[in-house]
Simulated assay, not measured.
Amino acid sequence: RTYAGLPVLGGDLIVHESASGASRSVDKATDADIEVTDTSAAIAPSGAERSALSAAQAAGDRKTGAEDAPRKVIWAATGKPVLAYETVVTGVRKDGTPSKLHVITDADSGRKLYEFQAVQNGTGTGQHNGKVTVGSVRSGSQWLLKDSARGGHRTYNLKHSWDETKKGSAFYDADNVWGNGKPTIAQTAAVDAHYGAAMTWDYYKKVLGRNGIKGNGKAAYSRVHFGDAYENAFWDDDCFCMTYGDGAGNKKPLTSLDVAGHEMSHGLTSATANLEYSGESGGLNEATSDIFGTAVEFYAKNAKDPGDYLIGEKIDINGDGTPLRYMDKPSKDGLSYDYWKSGVGNDDPHFTSGIANHFFYLLSEGS
């Protein structure tokens, strides 16, 4: 809804229609007429920005800055509609959560009229990561599993479809509390995948200074519950997404923290190094994902999955509690290489990755 070309905030008007398209009823957020005397502001946008920054800092936000120049709006949510500015202030909250505070300022007096936080977090309980914070947004009367603080990352439910061209169904929840830590409900794997994507995004940005996989601030998306008892996970450049199976008996989803970091990092390698997935470059490709997946695990400091030099130790893909790969001595799995030797490029990249994985371990811990 607009007035004189300006967005009207808080003045929603909803028309209910019958199946035939006939109007049945109208709901209005306000009974006041949407009009103002003048659309010329008495204070400059810079004044509104200063007021908004002060409001964010008063709320305890750090590293604050206006996302864009304040925009002129009509504020109709409280009482008589007035000309106002909306300023979006980004920053970091006291607990480290990203902030995107919308501050509404009276365009004539400079007085703050309202503020609301756009970055919302739910809580979830994953099978691998335990109770964690997950990014979510309001969608009508429900919550949508979408992380607006990290490029808009979303997690979808493939409902055991084998069709890799499908995006899947969005996850919605009534109370913004997701999963129960068990594979008996679909949300549990979604919590782990969503959290893993968030931790990987944060590691890239806060440690490496990279804004997303491609460095453009746009997130990939995650898909869980692919196939029936599918014991794998994969990155796909075509959909720019990570996909996770549910493992043996659909009870061991491959959504652990290091696997999530591993899969997203295949996207990073594709966007930057273009290492072909064959020969020695294939081993470097796979090792790069293992290395970044491990780095994400250490970065997250999650008590349920503390950092280590084991790959996939939580997913039990071997069925005997052993990890998928070892970085301290890759050959412990009976197939991987500890060091380079002639002809190594002829083997599977998952095994030749051991060379760079071992190198990373020695760099990190010493020989």
Rank of each mutant, 00 (worst) to 15 (best):
A76G: 01
R71P: 00
P70D: 06
R71I: 15
A56H: 07
E67I: 13
V88H: 10
A55R: 07
D68A: 14
A76M: 06
L83V: 05
T90F: 00
Y85Q: 11
L53I: 09
I74N: 08
G60V: 13
T78L: 05
E67V: 14
A77E: 07
K63Y: 13
A55M: 02
T90I: 11
A58G: 08
V82Q: 08
L53D: 01
V89L: 05
K80H: 05
A69D: 12
G65W: 12
L53Q: 04
D61I: 02
D61S: 08
D68C: 13
L83E: 03
E67L: 11
T78W: 00
E86C: 10
K72N: 06
P70V: 05
I74C: 10
V92T: 15
K80W: 03
R71S: 11
V89H: 04
Y85I: 02
D68K: 15
A56C: 08
K63A: 14
A58V: 04
A77H: 01
R62S: 15
T90G: 15
T64H: 00
A84P: 00
S54V: 05
T78Q: 09
A66Y: 08
A77K: 09
V92C: 05
G60Y: 06
Y85F: 14
A66R: 06
E86G: 09
A76W: 05
R62Q: 15
K63L: 13
T64Y: 04
R62Y: 04
A69T: 15
K72W: 00
G60M: 10
A59P: 03
A56D: 04
D61V: 06
K63V: 11
G91N: 04
V73L: 06
K80Q: 13
P81T: 00
A84K: 01
A59M: 13
A84C: 03
V88D: 03
V82K: 06
A55P: 09
G91K: 02
A66G: 01
T90A: 15
A55I: 03
E67R: 00
A66F: 09
W75Y: 15
Q57W: 02
S54I: 04
A84M: 11
K63D: 15
V73A: 07
S54N: 12
A59G: 11
A56T: 12
A76D: 06
P81V: 04
W75E: 00
V88G: 01
A69F: 11
T87G: 13
A55Y: 02
V82E: 10
K80P: 01
V73N: 00
D61W: 06
T78E: 10
V89E: 02
W75F: 14
G60N: 07
R71K: 15
G79L: 07
R71A: 03
Y85G: 10
K72G: 09
G79H: 02
Q57N: 14
W75S: 01
A56R: 02
E67A: 13
P81G: 11
P81S: 07
E67G: 01
T87P: 02
L53F: 08
G79S: 12
